[in-house]
Design a protein around this nucleic acid. Sequence first.
RNA 1: GACCCUAUCGUCUAGAGGCCUAGGACAAUACCCUUUCACGGUAUGAACCCGGGUUCGAAUCCCGGUGGGGUCGCCA
Length: 463
Amino acid sequence: MIRTRFAPSPTGFLHIGGARTALFAWAYARRHGGQFILRIEDTDVARSTPEAVQAILDGMAWLGLEYDEGPYYQMQRMDRYKEVIRQMLAAGSAYPCYTSADELEAMREAQRSRNEKPRYDGCWRPETGKRLPAPPAGVLPAVRFRNPAEGVVAWHDLVKGPITIANAELDDFVIARGDGTPTYNFCVVVDDWDMKISHVIRGDDHVNNTPRQINLFKALGAPLPEYGHLSMILGDDGQKLSKRHGAVSVMQYQEEGYLPEAVLNYLARLGWSHGDAETFSMGEFCSWFDLDHITASAAQFNTEKLNWLNAHYLKQADDSRLATETLRRLAGQGVDGSGCADLPRVMALYKGRVANLNELADAAHPFIVAVHPSPELLAQHLSDPVRAALRTLLAKLLDANWEAPALSQAIKETLLQHGIKMPQLAIPLRVVLLAQPQSPAIDAVLEVLGREAVCGRINSVLV
RNA sequence: GACCCUAUCGUCUAGAGGCCUAGGACAAUACCCUUUCACGGUAUGAACCCGGGUUCGAAUCCCGGUGGGGUCGCCA
């Protein structure tokens, strides 16, 4: 049974990189008929917040990344961690360390000044024939893992291929703090073991944790999972993403009017490919997804391509779904569009012309409430001959058969009578009706706007 | 600084030694469509980081350099 997991720490929103990691882990499980588990890694009590947990859950839900198990919370598994730590202490694969934070910092500083890799010096590590210092009074020791001193840790990474790291590069890392709470590298291993995770799919930033975790698995006598490390996502500008620079919540994409299927499709193609396939459903994605076609190098985020995908999915989106979205966005602006029965028709008219849901809502606005073109706009477009033509048109519209072909006919007759060309009438008409000189085909706009609004708005500029 | 990973158009990528005169997509440019603006259609420009090997043959394999990314916490 393939079991993958997504294990975010609740110290902030679900950002785009985390979302892609979750997507790939989710897709891998789906592809192989396996299970996808959500685990909240909240052992950093100082930085974890319930708001962040909720933000992560919201982000997953919006994207439709459903999990088969969880969410598990590490803070609820303390007893299990402490039990394992006791066992390791008893077995000698872990030991108490009384070095203080200040001493560690001084140690690292000295090492850095000598251009050495900063690391714990192992002074409390028990060795046969070695005399350990006397434990200082009143100090609660941290617990360190007794990492093998020699040899190498090697694994075949599912996306990067063979990776080898010498144990000499690794120091004895802390698995439990002075207060007894376990730390990340330790909890991950116990959890992945207990939860029977078969494939650990996670970000590139964990490559250097992997050998430590593998050594822990071995010390525990636990079976090793497979590992696959996804490269990072860089910002639009090629710079790395951070909370301060460019990293935004997936929920912000929702606010900005992106459809979840567009974000998902974009993320899927960022670092993964299936030949020339550019647009595909999540069903297709799950049936195609494999780790062999993941790029091993970092990928730069490209908002313009996301925009294109969003426009693509907007064109295919169901009109009533778009109407619901539009209503929600309009309500956010204090506009109640619930009385507009023709909203789906407005959506049909505009969904092929906009890049996001906010633009769609803006476009729908004049169909719901009367617009007031600025005096400048009116002055620019409403000359006396135009007013005369509008007067003629208004008379025709008052008793026209209210369907696009008949409306188009009325406009063409007006054009003929006044000896003007289509743009000379259509553009002022757009300004009068919608307060902007561009719109979809004018007869379609008239049809959807309705006789009352059209005639009323024309009349209001003629009096 | 040390260690690990990585390198094809501006960007995302195809490419598993001959199918490559390097393909697709976004973006760009031009033209077409048109009732305005979009959409759409057609076309064009645009890349194998550098240097050595291996091979009859290298974008593809190996080594080195350089660039980029990651990690060096009692954070995750």
